[in-house]
Design a protein around this nucleic acid. Structure first.
Lengths: 153, 153
DNA sequence: TATGAAATAATATAGTT
DNA sequence: AACTATATTATTTCATA
């Protein structure tokens, strides 16, 4: 069940371009197209590859801003937690949310059209989720690196 | 140059599955395959779609841990900054890095195989970059949400 | 300038060894 | 796993709005 050298080469190729033709992946992998096709299918079936997504230019889609919001809940009842997490799932401007260590409970990654929009998301959506005590915003000034590519060796 | 209703439908479809066949995207878009194929090409050429990537299961690839590391530089000379940013680019375990507001300079998202590996990345790689004053780690306990899909309406 | 339909080209998958 | 054959999918051409 662990990935062998071929699988790693295949995944690496797809990390360069998830729509790379199988023949080209095959070339990079020193394998013919057939086993590559079958291996990709297997990686999908095994849940190693969960899906494929386009990398979009956020700015070109009108999202000029980007922030991390640290959130504290005032009580950690199951109710509060599940209500909070549901609200996070439902908010399309939240692109990531983690429960974290430290003095804040959650770290939430938000995209916004502009400062006003960010303020609206923070104050009108996040802060108003029942159980939320306080929020601290860390605004992204510049993105130095952003990838989802994982090292495979 | 802004996206019209068709473009948005196309991008939305690709956000569901970046390898969805053009014919299927066409169906969802109420358009035939020809213009969909051309529009995808145009979105790529215009840099709206920057690339395609597989969504991988980090755990299945041996990355059990995930942390955000806040970093401060002790001097903000151009030299320090570019050296730091280069080190970040070169570190394969850093999947994201942002210059941010607040009392820390950078927020760095790191993946690691285990606690020891995380400690190694933090203490041996990040903290040793010249100019780095201190680091604060926020360890991810649970990922509630993680998407790169952007809302397009 | 952009579409749809048909034809062609490219690509992926299945069968066989 | 590779080779070959078949099936699926993408793209080009062309007529048209």
């Amino acid at each position: 069940m662990p990935l062998d050298e071929f699988d790693r080469k295949i995944v690496q190729s797809l990390q360069i371009d998830a729509r790379m033709p199988v023949a080209q992946v095959a070339e990079r992998t020193a394998l013919s197209a057939t086993p590559v096709s079958r291996r990709i299918k297997r990686l999908e079936d095994d849940g190693v590859i969960v899906g494929y997504q386009p990398i979009l230019d956020a700015r070109k889609l009108g999202f000029e801003l980007d922030a991390y919001v640290l959130i504290n809940l005032d009580a950690h009842s199951d109710d509060n937690i599940s209500r909070f997490e549901q609200a996070i799932q439902d908010n399309p401007y939240v692109i990531a949310c983690h429960a974290v260590t430290g003095d804040m409970d959650y770290l939430v990654h938000v995209i916004a059209r502009d400062v006003e929009h960010l303020s609206q998301i923070t104050l009108k959506s996040l802060l108003r989720i029942p159980g939320v005590r306080d929020v601290k915003s860390i605004i992204v000034l510049e993105t130095i690196k952003e990838t989802r590519a994982m090292p495979l060796d």
